[in-house]
């Protein structure tokens, strides 16, 4: 196939890079949520120990 014109090729290239960035952002967001949950639970345990 002949090379696509820039305006059409640009959509595919942007799509590929958006997929990559989105994948990494979603992954980091999931890990971030997990870390925030761990932090909350540790705070709850510390608070419970202090109450005792």
């Amino acid at each position: 196939m002949p090379a696509l014109p820039l305006d059409e090729a640009g959509k595919y290239v942007a799509g590929a890079y958006v997929v990559f960035v989105a994948l990494i952002l979603v992954y980091v967001a999931i890990i971030g949520t997990k870390i925030a949950r761990i932090e909350r639970e540790i705070s709850a345990i510390v608070a419970a120990e202090e109450d005792e």
Binding site: A3, L4, L6, A9, G10, V13
Partner: peptide, 18 residues
């Protein structure tokens, strides 16, 4: 830009390293 594929070849730089 690649002489054969043109601008679309830019995908190579994210696809192949990944």
């Amino acid at each position: 830009n690649d002489a054969d594929q043109g601008f679309i070849q830019k995908i190579f730089y994210v696809h192949v390293p990944m």
